[in-house]
Design a protein around this nucleic acid. Structure first.
Length: 366
DNA sequence: ACCAGCAAGGGGATTGTTTA
DNA sequence: TAAACAATCCCCTTGCTGGT
């Protein structure tokens, strides 16, 4: 029986040794790991996928970086460097020299929603059988501890006991980090509105309503009706919608991150884009920032103070106006010379654009 | 007047039930 | 007994309806 720790180390080793261009899927890594360990790891695919996404997540941004760093387009190939695995201490998995390369974007899953290593240890310590289905003869398990983690991303979702709307059907289940509390990716268009690259669905809805109220976008005669402004028009592709349709339209812009049950039909936008790391969790989309000179030049603006959301929106307008989305994968932006000059790379994931702007072109104000 | 419940919509987690 | 399947819950929003 191989432990989660060994698997985690094995994943890191495979990624280091193989090089990203040779690893095309989670299954590929599973297979290589199976060959390496001589075990059937198919039941560990989700765990392995988690490990991959953790290892390939972007480096976290630090606030002082955002404030102090001068606009210096970085070598994009460093964008996804392999992170050290907290499990890593077994000598047989000693890391091999690793040359940073651009990983296939489909490996860049839910990066910034990733639990901190210490929290992850909790998961790893639990045999999956106990985490998942019936606890067999064990007494009722307490709510999953990673519920707390979900609240880190969904700060407004109070961890207080939920409303007791459930009928008296014995044991009650708590949401935990899954279900609607699961952190989902946000499309670039929707990011302009909610201001975050990844949020739980509930939080996305909440932010959206905050945006609607803030901008007075409800029809006064029928508050169920939403009158779209420019940003919402891009998201919903209509001038007017109602609150129920809104959720449906919203789902197009919510990208499932991480392991997911295989749907019978691929109906969603493919998840292959890396998420921008964003340490600024105080309504970043609506904050005023000073943009870099390069960005001001790019946007053809005189002034350098503007709403962050507006700056992002303008960049996306440029992308769309110039058809810079990869026709094969719209989550990948193929930079033209002008965008190349701004971002310092030839191509970038959709979600990576905001990260680059955050990191190098937004100078936050107090 | 006030309150609770319901309406739609998303999808994963969990529990309960049925079947092999 | 295990697997497969079904049902329920989680959250959020506004406005309507029915009960108190």
């Amino acid at each position: 029986m191989v432990s989660d720790q060994e698997i985690a180390e094995g994943v890191e080793t495979v990624l280091r040794q193989q090089g990203p261009n040779n690893v095309t899927s989670v299954n590929g890594v599973v297979q290589q790991l199976e060959a390496k360990l001589g075990l059937d790891l198919s039941h560990k695919a989700a765990f392995i996928r988690d490990q991959i996404s953790f290892l390939l997540r972007p480096y976290p941004l630090h606030h002082h970086q955002q404030q102090q760093q001068q606009p210096q387009p970085p070598p994009p190939k460093d964008h996804f460097a392999l992170h050290h695995n907290p499990y890593h201490h077994h000598p047989q998995f000693a890391p091999t020299p690793f040359l940073p390369q651009q990983f296939p974007s489909h490996f860049a899953l839910h990066p910034h929603s990733r639990p901190p290593p210490e929290a992850y240890t909790f998961q790893a310590q639990q045999p999956p059988q106990q985490q998942l289905r019936r606890p067999v003869a064990l007494p009722q398990q307490p709510p999953p501890k990673f519920e707390v983690l979900a609240s880190q991303n969904a700060t407004a979702v109070a961890p207080e006991p939920p409303k007791d709307s459930a009928p008296t059907t014995g044991t009650k289940r708590r949401g935990g980090a899954g279900g609607l509390n699961k952190v989902c990716g946000v499309s670039p268009e929707l990011q302009v509105v909610v201001g975050e690259p990844a949020l739980p669905r509930t939080e996305i809805v909440k932010q959206l309503w905050a945006y609607i109220r803030k901008n007075n976008l409800q029809d006064p005669s029928n508050k169920r009706k939403i009158i779209c402004d420019d940003a919402l028009r891009v998201v919903f592709e209509t001038d007017c919608t109602d609150m129920f349709k809104m959720n449906k339209l919203l789902s197009k812009h919510i990208i499932t991150l991480g392991p997911k049950k295989e749907p019978t039909q691929a109906k969603r936008v493919k998840l292959d884009a890396e998420s921008a790391t964003d340490t600024d969790n105080t309504q970043p989309g609506s904050s005023t920032v000073t943009i870099s000179e390069a960005l001001a030049k790019f946007l053809g603006l005189e002034g350098r103070e503007m709403l962050k959301s507006e700056a992002i929106r303008l960049v996306w307008e440029y992308v769309k106006a110039n058809n810079l989305e990869d026709p094969v994968n719209s989550m990948v932006i193929v930079c033209d010379p002008k965008l190349h000059e701004l971002l310092g790379c030839e191509s970038i994931s959709a979600l990576g654009v905001q990260e680059m702007l955050d990191r190098y072109h937004f100078i936050k104000q107090s």
